[in-house]
Amino acid sequence: MAVLFLVEVAAGKVKKASYEAASYAAQVATQLGTEAVGLALGTSDNAELAELGIYGAKKVVHANNADFDSFDAGAWAKAVSDAAASVGAKVVIIPQTLTGKAVAPRVAVRLNAGIISGAVSLPDADFVVKKTAFSGKAFAFMKITSDNKVIAFVPNSVGATKGSGSATVEASDIAPAASKVTVKDVKREGGNVAPLPEAELVVSAGRGMKGPENWGIIEDLANVLGATTACSRPVADVGWRPHHEHVGQTGVAIRPNLYIAIGISGAIQHLAGVNQSKVIVVINKDPEAPFFKAADYGIIGDAFEVVPKLTEAIKAFKASQG
């Protein structure tokens, strides 16, 4: 028996969401009186994978096969279900990154397992899991009735808990099934900052910015914070910002620790994608902007004056922290 979790590696580094998966799986394993085992697909080095032990993994099975590096949902799902069978896992934990979202439902079908996706809690004693529903406007508590179970959790929801364990890394000869998909090109933007679904700090702006040429002050603020930038839908629709920055009901749903919304009115469809942020700061010149009702901290003022001042204040604060 074991609880299996999926590990994702990007540019040689284990993704943050995978550390969280290790923590999640380790806690479920404790509940079930068993161990957490990770499955890593594709190239990465053993020392990096062994770090998963700090978050509770006992073992990481590593299929160090470059054919896995180019992602195919079908091939990955087969590898995960094969690994589940070989370690005797009835519960599989998958972080709901874009990769995880494509793999998890296929794994569930292969294992005849019910799936809870959008999980934001650990299972309770009856294996009931809290999950997001209605685009963050509510939560549902779901129970899996099948013997095998797949849980796909929302990154940043349960957190990665550090302990002092260590994981052994075991080579596996699981190979990808022949893929009918040919990856031709990968374009990545954004450099060092965390992609939106994983970001802990997000600076977001809307139509109040008047035009794309004014985004410099937004980027400056994001840079001093080490935050990822986002935007409202109309801003992406008219091409002021790339569409992957669009957050909300029809864009990316996020739950960072801090969401700073600048010149965004706070329409219900926008809130649906950001209302699970731990702390929301709203900067808007209209005291009646609905966003203030959903905010923790608010500044009524002109973004063009307030934002540069805030950037300076954070710079000064960071300097004082050393």
């Binding site: 992602f71 990769t99 998909v181 990856v183 090109d185 990968v186 374009k187 992609p195 994983e198």
Partner: peptide, 10 residues
């Protein structure tokens, strides 16, 4: 994909 786009054929 996370932080970008992938182009593929199938």
């Amino acid at each position: 994909i996370e932080g970008g786009e992938e182009i593929l054929s199938v």
